[in-house]
């Protein structure tokens, strides 16, 4: 996953390590945000059952797919708009 521009060739050893570390951090954070948001969208908060209901499982699968699609879409739009506005990273 390189949509934030990490993973490009980097000279020093420390920078190479940082680049990979950053890339994994982005993935880990995206994962953690997805868990939070899809739990909120799909899981019944009364916790009357300890097992995932069929409907909840299906909802989680679709939520994950939609989250990824949104993530990619927003990343692309952000790049386009930022370029168009000639702005830096702070928008």
């Amino acid at each position: 996953m390189s949509f934030l521009g990490f993973g490009k060739p980097q000279p020093t050893s420390a920078e190479r390590i940082s680049a990979v570390e950053n890339e994994l951090k982005v993935v880990a954070e995206m994962h953690s945000r997805m868990v939070k948001i899809c739990t909120l969208k799909c899981i019944d908060k009364t916790y009357r059952e300890g097992e995932l209901a069929k409907g909840e499982s299906v909802c989680l699968d679709r939520c994950a797919a939609k989250f990824f699609e949104s993530h990619q879409k927003i990343s692309e739009q952000l790049q386009k708009e930022t370029a168009a506005r000639g702005g830096g990273m702070g928008f």
Partner: peptide
């Protein structure tokens, strides 16, 4: 409720981990 919540959260975590 807490006990069921923990179980369900673990299943959620596992399922979303696979999809991810």
């Amino acid at each position: 409720c807490i006990s069921r919540c923990v179980m369900k959260s673990m299943s959620t975590q596992t399922r979303l981990g696979e999809r991810f």
